[in-house]
Every structure is written in structure tokens, then in C-alpha cells.
Design a protein around this nucleic acid. Structure first.
Length: 444
RNA sequence: GCUGGGAUAGCCUAGCCUGGUAGGGCGCAGGUCUGGAAAACCUGUGCUGAAAUAGCUCGGGAGUUCAAAUCUCCCUCCCAGCGCCA
């Protein structure tokens, strides 16, 4: 949620921010209409209450003095009726006003590119040495800014073909029991996933992150504080008969973990890494990536999360992105970093960097990491504050993927397969975790 | 699931039986004093509001009453004991 005081005092910058996001600014107009009514109504209400309070005090005195109070009682009774009416109206206004306020997106950071469409995201940097099929070279150079690649004269097999041929997953039977976008992971592919999880856990705990496994379901209050209406609409699964939602990322329970708390200044920053399955309905993704395990309703993810003082949050944004980049450098997966443009940002984020890996079979860069600075937006909705010398202030929250394992399995299958698509080499840093160095090799 | 105890401001605590509009301590901030600091003393300390000698705030909600932290009912969470349980 945005700061209502800031909105009142600096409305122009919110109008500008909403326009840059392609967001309907009539919501701001509606907000100000309601807010004015709210202020006027509050004035009336307070006057009436003041009146009532002084009469009540008078009654108390008269009782002690043994005087008659019946007339005063009647006055208070009629005041109560008026007060109740005004209060009911004030509540109505308040509910509507909060509803609108929650829809208004966060202010954009200055260096977010003002444009629409993912194709206009701004390239920040590229790293790695990619295998690029001849037909894709032009696309690769345009989208990476790099001429440093290995040209190959064949298109690597898609992960869907590889996992089917090598008996590494069963998509069909998963479809039978659960529907599309589910999977059974099998054999060495599943061991590789466990290796990725353990690798990420070790990697982040060495960098000072507290590792935790969160609840996989959380209640409405927590979820609505941690997310926005878009997430609710398109991505969340609701549990029947209980006030519970399946999490779409460990970000949700981690963010909500500290709701309604006031932290001591020296407790900050708090670095957390959560490991969890993620459940997403993927409404609005019909027809996209329908096969395999690239886009699924359930996947596992290691997430990074930071609670910090406002003045530090941009440094921590860099830290999160660096952690993720260091993971992909160590895995030797080629990637680029993009600064996501204003039209494609979520409501909570002031700024977002995506990391996109090179997928040689698809001949494309595809998102594997999303790192956001939500500034005080999420903390205000969740009411997470800390004690500073200037009083209690909202913390800033940031989140970033470390490893979304199913996607990285695909990245490994596409980038590390041999020419025939019959063997997959395991990235060196993972071998201590897998206990084998390839899938489809002689020892398999 | 059952029985009992509990939830008061950043933290701790009084008030609840017997209804009259939240008192104290700690911490923090400012002030007096000092060369500077400590101590001592004074003032302030949540939310709404541009502000008031204004309103709100005692886990949440409803009720009784002119008036509810206080009485009644419902709910949530925490603690103890009992039961059930992978």
C-alpha cells in the first residue's frame, strides 16, 4: 500500500507514476473524491462525539451532586442516533477508500525505463558463453549485446523430448491425475533437483542468510498484505472450507512472518532464504509453454528476502541480484540481466531486474529470476515497522529468486546436453551434491 | 477436542471484583544544569486531523448503559493440564 499522506501532499507524482505504468488514473480521482467526503464527515462526527462526551461528564457530576439527569439522558440518546448514522457512513467511505488505495501501485524508481512490453526491457548486462544455433545468432547478438558465443550447426533437443526419451519425468500420467502443467520427476532428474536445492541452501547460508522452510499455506490477512489484487486474481489457489491459500512463492509467508511487528533498529537488516514449493494457477498463460516442466502449476524455489532500513534498500537490491548472478556464473549458465520497463512491473515493485537464461533449444532468453525492491509498499500493507530515532518507520522489503528449480533443470538440459541429446553433463559445482557427473552416461 | 489461566502503548506493569473515560516504571527524544558527560529535575512519547482546550485507542467483534479496560455473549491467538494423533 502507498502512503496516504504522501498521496495527498504529492498527488502529481502518483498520477505520473500511474501513467507510466499504463494504469488507469481515474482510480486516483475517485480516491480524492472519497477522501474529501471522509474528512468532512469526520469533522461532523468528532463534533457530535465531543458534545456527547461533555454531557456524559456533566451527568457524572450531577449524579454526585444528587441532581436530576433525565433531560441530559434524553439528549445523549438522540445524539447517539446521529452519531451512529454518521459512523455507518464513515465506515462505508473508509472501506471503499482503502479498497482504492490498495489498488494504487508503488512509485517508480527513477531509473526504471518508461515503456511498455517485455521486448522493451533495458539490457543491463550479459554474462557467459552461450551455445547458439546458426539461425539464432542475429537474435542472440541483438538481445545480449555480446559477440562472445559458440556457434553450433544443430538445434539442441527440447527438454520435453529429452526427459521423455530418457525416462526422467512422466508428464502424461501427471496429466491423468492432476491435469495439464503437472509432472512426476524421476530418477537422476529428481536427484539433480535435490542437488540444486541443497546447493542454493549452502550458497545462501554461507552469505549470511537464515534458511527456512515456511508454511505452504497462509491465511487471507497475510496473503492480502504480502501481495496485490493481480496475484489474487490470476495466481492463487484457495483451500476450500478453510481460510487458507497455497503460497505462490516463499516470498509471501516470509514477508508476512513479521506482520504487525516493530523491530529494533539493530535487528536490521534481516536476510532470509526460504525453500518451498510454489503453486500457481497460471491463469492468462493459456497456450504458453504448454509442454514439459517449464511453466507448471507446482514447482520448487529457493527465494531470497530482505527486510532493511529505507536508506539501505538499493544496496540490498544490488546484493540480491549479485547473489543470483553468482549462482548462475558458478553453474555456467549464460544469462542476461534486464531492467524491467514501467509498463511490465508488478504493483508492489518500485524497480525490478529479471535475469534471463539462454535456452539454446528455444533460441531465446527466458526469465529465471525476478528481483524486486518493493520499498515500503509491502511493509505498509503488512504493518512491519522498526524503531528509529525519528520514531517508528516502515521497513523496506526486497525479494529475489535464487533458484526456481524446474526452470533451471530445463536450462541445464538445454545447455549441457551433448550433440545427440543423449547425455547431460552436470555442472561441476553440483557434482558433490548429485554424486554423479552426467545423466545418460555409462554409470547411469 | 476438553478444562483452567492470560492478551493494557516500543517493553514491563496497575486498574477489572465494586462501570465515571488509562496511572506508574523502563526505554527513547527534547530541555535545565555542565568545559563536556553522568546524575538529578522538567517536558514529551500510539492513531486520525492543518490544528485544537478535538476525536480515537486496553487482542478482535457484538450487546447492556447516559457512560465499558471494567458487566454479558461470540471469535482469534498464547500458556498449563488432559485427550487424540504421523
Amino acid at each position: 500500500m502507498i502512503d496516504i499522506k504522501l498521496l495527498r501532499s504529492n498527488s502529481e507524482m502518483f498520477y505520473k507514476s500511474c501513467e507510466d505504468r499504463g494504469f488507469d488514473t481515474s482510480i486516483l480521482d475517485q480516491f480524492f473524491d472519497l477522501d474529501n467526503e471522509w474528512k468532512n464527515n469526520l469533522k461532523d462526527l468528532n463534533n457530535k462525539k465531543h458534545n456527547k462526551n461533555s454531557i456524559t461528564m456533566e451527568i457524572s457530576k450531577k449524579i454526585k451532586a444528587g441532581e436530576d439527569i433525565e433531560d441530559l439522558k434524553k439528549t445523549v440518546e438522540s445524539l447517539n442516533i446521529e452519531i451512529e448514522k454518521l459512523e455507518r457512513r464513515q465506515n462505508e467511505i473508509d472501506v471503499k477508500r482503502t479498497e482504492l488505495l490498495r489498488l494504487i501501485p508503488n512509485l517508480l524508481a527513477d531509473d526504471v525505463p518508461r515503456c511498455f512490453g517485455d521486448e522493451n526491457n533495458k539490457l543491463v548486462r550479459y554474462h557467459g558463453r552461450a551455445k547458439v544455433f546458426s539461425d539464432d545468432i542475429k537474435y542472440f547478438i541483438e538481445n545480449s549485446g555480446s559477440h562472445d558465443y559458440d556457434e553450433i550447426d544443430y538445434r539442441p533437443k527440447s527438454h520435453v523430448d529429452v526427459i521423455t526419451e530418457m525416462n526422467l519425468a512422466d508428464i502424461e500420467r501427471a496429466g491423468k491425475i492432476a491435469g495439464a502443467r503437472f509432472y512426476f520427476l524421476k530418477n537422476r532428474l529428481f536427484k539433480l533437483e535435490l542437488a540444486l536445492i541443497n546447493y542454493a541452501v549452502d550458497f545462501l547460508s554461507q552469505r549470511g542468510y537464515t534458511i527456512l522452510e515456511p508454511p505452504f499455506m497462509i491465511n487471507y490477512k497475510s496473503m492480502s498484505g504480502a501481495t496485490d489484487i493481480e496475484t489474487f486474481k490470476d495466481t492463487l489457489y484457495k483451500i476450500e472450507n478453510d481460510d487458507l491459500y497455497l503460497i505462490a512463492t516463499a516470498e509471501h509467508p516470509i514477508a508476512a512472518m513479521l506482520q504487525d511487528e516493530i523491530l529494533m533498529d539493530d535487528e536490521l537488516p534481516i536476510r532470509v532464504s526460504g525453500v518451498s514449493p510454489c503453486f500457481r494457477r497460471e491463469a492468462g498463460a493459456h497456450g504458453k509453454d504448454t509442454k514439459g516442466i517449464f511453466r507448471v502449476h507446482q514447482f520448487n524455489k529457493i527465494e531470497q528476502f530482505i527486510f532493511c532500513r529505507p536508506e539501505d534498500s538499493w544496496d540490498f537490491f544490488d546484493e540480491l541480484v549479485k547473489n543470483s548472478e553468482d549462482i548462475y556464473k558458478s553453474l555456467k549458465i549464460p544469462y542476461r540481466v534486464v531492467n524491467v520497463c514501467s509498463g511490465e512491473l508488478g504493483n508492489l515493485a518500485a524497480k525490478k531486474y529479471d535475469i534471463e537464461a539462454w535456452f539454446p533449444s528455444q533460441g531465446k532468453f527466458r526469465e529465471i529470476v525476478s528481483a524486486s525492491n518493493d520499498t515500503d509498499y509491502q511493509a505498509r500493507s503488512l504493518n512491519i515497522r522498526y524503531r528509529s530515532k525519528e520514531g517508528n518507520k516502515f521497513v523496506h522489503t526486497l525479494n529475489s529468486t535464487a533458484i526456481a528449480t524446474e526452470r533451471i533443470l530445463v536450462a541445464i538440459i538445454e545447455n549441457f546436453q551433448d550433440r545427440d541429446g543423449k547425455r547431460i553433463r552436470i555442472p561441476d559445482v553440483l557434482i558433490p551434491y548429485t554424486g554423479f557427473s552426467e545423466i545418460g552416461g555409462d554409470d547411469d
